[in-house]
Design a protein around this nucleic acid. Sequence first.
DNA 1: GATATTTACGTCCGCCGTAACTATT
DNA 2: AATAGTTACGGCGGACGTAAATATC
Lengths: 326, 326
Amino acid sequence: MSGETNLQQWRFALAVARNGLSVTSAAQALGVSQPAISRALKALEHTLGFDLFVRQGRALTRVTPEGEQLLDAAQRAVAEFNSLTALAQDVAGDESGSLSLATTHTQARYVLPPVITEFRRHHPSVDLNLHQGTSEQIAEMVAADRVQLAIATGSEALFNDMVLLPVYRWHRQVVVPRKHPLTRSARLTLAQLAAFPLVTYVFSFSGQSSLQQIFARADLSPKIALTARDSDVIKTYVRLGLGVGIVASVALDPREDSDLVALDAAHLFPIHTTWVGFRRGTRLREHTYDFLAFFGPHLSRRLIDRASVDPTRIPELFRRLVLPVR
Amino acid sequence: MSGETNLQQWRFALAVARNGLSVTSAAQALGVSQPAISRALKALEHTLGFDLFVRQGRALTRVTPEGEQLLDAAQRAVAEFNSLTALAQDVAGDESGSLSLATTHTQARYVLPPVITEFRRHHPSVDLNLHQGTSEQIAEMVAADRVQLAIATGSEALFNDMVLLPVYRWHRQVVVPRKHPLTRSARLTLAQLAAFPLVTYVFSFSGQSSLQQIFARADLSPKIALTARDSDVIKTYVRLGLGVGIVASVALDPREDSDLVALDAAHLFPIHTTWVGFRRGTRLREHTYDFLAFFGPHLSRRLIDRASVDPTRIPELFRRLVLPVR
DNA sequence: GATATTTACGTCCGCCGTAACTATT
DNA sequence: AATAGTTACGGCGGACGTAAATATC
């Protein structure tokens, strides 16, 4: 190995690895020209004396075994340097900076607005980037290092190497128009529900603990009138009488949705936990700690730090905490 | 904070901190000109927006509180980057590089020669730097990051933030010329010893478990004929009949010292453990693992890695190991 | 006046972006 | 043809060393 490598080269290589082995998208993600990446990568591999990526023609097809090892170590080095920078800014009392987060529709639409408002009030000069997407898209943004925080419900398996902190729990509610037959029922049952066409989230019908399976276990197979990606669409179609809606409890606004009747369904479906996550090895800025505290008041700095050090202890650390149910 | 800091700046700042806040010696240690450090430091502090060092006039007198925090984090970042580089070289199968170690006279003179020989045979292209000094000097070299490995006996307190692995144990032996009265004694006692002037190491008479105290506890106060810094000097004066020598057991060579008689003194003085240490957070090169294995065959890669991860477990990890006594 | 740090200056090297080129589909 | 990566070129900026200046003791 002749010569020195530098952090920038590793940053570039990591960006390539994280952006589907595409030099172009890595360049876009980092805001540099594409030749810059291409050249730096070549120089890096040259000083290393071996390749990090396998090429087919000019395209990168996969990471070499050596690359796996080194990119892993490089990730740690880059993370450590980023932590240093974050610490420096905090010590400087520098209020600027950015906070980028990715979350789902329901969180962005119903849960986060007051949190964001509060945050902006305390940190007006931090520029906030909120990205909305499916769990998969959120996971992708995290993987490509485009966001610092991820907020989602379930799908923990998609977020490897992250520290996932439970924030609050919610259950499903059934929504129907006024005067719907179900409003006369004192305590809903699955059988009653299954008698009507259902309108609910797309993802509620796939996966392990899907609604499908819950009904199936009771030997019921309800008709699905419509699956949507967000609660607003669901409520719209419930209003049109298309069927009975099943939405997250947080997605109901007493005022806005006063034309609808919400029926408790906590006893029918399992409870969900919404979490917020960040990459392991990241040092959070002061303002990020603040954001987390606004989001979940139990998320004290002390608790977050402990969880960061050893994420396997998270269940234990949160066991005694009574998370709010919304 | 405006602009970016870079690793080099932090390396420089760390070097200054580690070299007694002297810009000049930091420059020498890093092999760069002194203005380079001075300038980089100024630039770093400027982008940070606050000072890392307190100045009195032009001289640096101490580290600021902010500096403490940041240099600590910077150390981690730099160490992580160095680890990356070390890994890269190993993955490249790069046999070059260097291994620098600091140790005491006894180790350098009696214990290390075969280790070094073996090492050179396996890694002829690694250039080896062996520095000899007192425990304090060794600690200083470690602190200034001028050596990767330190080998010493006792003085653990001087080597903070290091991983210290026990290698072997040794006891003291009494050496006298042939026909010395003590050679007739079957089993030495402190009282017998105290009847003669003693010749031994300087450091054996200072500190916690010094010879002085051992004799004092037995109400004895032997006459000290000479204290030397190395065993060769001691043996020389024993040969001249100046007194009875007390040396490390490893410092006796059956052939070379055939004109002297060695008397067992293991029952009189506490046993010592010689250790080898390296800074926490360092990633060792392959050849360094090899060196350690040659030095202490029980120092397997697995054991070293475990000890590195959590040095507090070292006593536990080594408990079941029977260290050789020499 | 000696020592250590800072400032000044000239040079060089490295990295970047634009643009042209090339391989692959 | 379009897409993605590489090579070529010109320019800018950062970092270094030498040398001079300036504090500080």
